[in-house]
Simulated assay, not measured.
Amino acid sequence: MTLTHRLSYLGSRYRFDCMFNNYPSLPEYPGSVLRSAFGMALRRIACVTNQSTCPGCPLINECVYTKIFDSGIVAQTTGISLTPYVIESSIVEPKTNSTDFMFGFHMVVYGIALKQLPLLVLAWQKVLACGLGKKRTTGKLVRVVCCQKGSQDVCVWREDQPRIIPHDTTTHLDIPVDKHEVVLHFDTPVRLQRKGKILGHSEITSADLISGCMRRFSAVVACSGEQIDRRSIRELTEQSKSLEDKKELKFVQYSRYSSRQRYEMQLPGLIGSWRIRGDLKPYLHFLYLCEIFHVGKNTSIGLGKYTIDPQFN
């Protein structure tokens, strides 16, 4: 029996179940498409000044839209840029009957976004009503289910009961006390960088992964108003250079179209398995937290998603 200790963080993972008359045409990693549509719908709902652009708006630092979706704008005046959600790229396998197509996607919500869950649900309703994909296939939101790891799924919103049901919004993680080996399986491309450069298979090290997980941890807890000692992060990163690893990763080129900047962006990354050995005790809570909140760049569109092999739990 593996000894564990429990850590808790404010944040929840939700599944949004949708129904379409026709199957919407979406890319392999649809997180970017979903995020773009979500942002436009959220702005239409939240904006009270009706300005064409956000810069220069007198309410910019208090606006729900900029705090949730466009935190980079807020950072220009506050110096703080935090994105309090992850739209997971992996679509739940579609189910079809004679007339309707059902599928779902997941969204990890924390920080200020968690307090605005009813607004997020309304935004997704608007997205589906306007349509998704190249053909703008319309649909409707059927239910929202809270899917906390290690807990039973709870339906918190239904089409016929359009109010959020009170539920536990805390993520509970049971972290092994003593573990010397983990295997991570990356389901979507992970994009880790060092000195501003995205790392390839031959350059990336376990220290880069640990550093990325600790930075991600810092961002997640900062969304709840907490901070961790940056000096301790640097010290732990230096210590992690002694870890051994075996990588079975391959390079993939993911592209996304930026509707705001109006050009296609190339986002290279790595997918596959990564085995890490050594004294993992100082790093386990970072690794297990990022299994839920992802790691690396572009986590908001679902990149950097991995699972920890249960064989090593």
Rank of each mutant, 00 (worst) to 15 (best):
T2Y: 10
T2L: 14
L3Y: 04
L3F: 02
T4S: 12
G11P: 09
Y14G: 06
R15Q: 13
R15M: 12
D17N: 13
M19V: 01
F20Q: 07
S25F: 05
L26V: 06
E28G: 02
P30T: 02
P30S: 07
S32N: 12
R35Q: 11
S36K: 14
A37G: 02
L42A: 08
R43P: 00
R44F: 00
A46T: 03
S52C: 03
C54A: 07
P55Y: 08
G56I: 06
C57M: 10
P58T: 01
P58E: 09
L59V: 00
E62T: 05
C63S: 06
T66I: 07
K67H: 08
D70W: 11
V74I: 06
I80P: 02
P84L: 10
P84K: 14
Y85F: 14
Y85S: 08
S89L: 09
S90M: 13
E93C: 03
E93D: 04
P94G: 00
K95P: 00
T96W: 08
S98Q: 14
D100Y: 12
F101Y: 11
M102L: 13
G104T: 04
F105L: 06
Y110E: 04
G111T: 05
Q116M: 09
P118Y: 05
L128K: 14
T137L: 03
T137C: 06
T138Q: 14
R143T: 01
R143S: 13
C147M: 13
K149H: 11
S151E: 12
Q152K: 15
D153C: 08
V154C: 05
V154E: 12
P162C: 05
H167Q: 10
E181M: 14
L184G: 05
F186V: 04
P189I: 01
R191L: 04
Q193S: 04
K197V: 04
I204S: 04
D208T: 02
S211A: 09
G212M: 10
G212Y: 06
M214F: 07
S218M: 13
A219I: 06
A219Q: 15
A222S: 14
S224T: 07
G225P: 07
R234S: 09
R234Q: 12
E235F: 10
L236V: 02
E238P: 02
Q239T: 05
S240G: 08
K241D: 00
D245A: 13
E248Y: 13
F251K: 15
Y254P: 00
S255G: 01
Y263N: 06
E264P: 06
Q266G: 01
Q266C: 03
L267P: 03
I276H: 06
R277S: 10
R277K: 15
G278C: 09
P282A: 02
F286M: 11
E291R: 06
E291Q: 14
E291V: 00
I292A: 02
I292R: 15
N298M: 09
T299E: 04
I301N: 03
G302N: 08
Y306W: 11
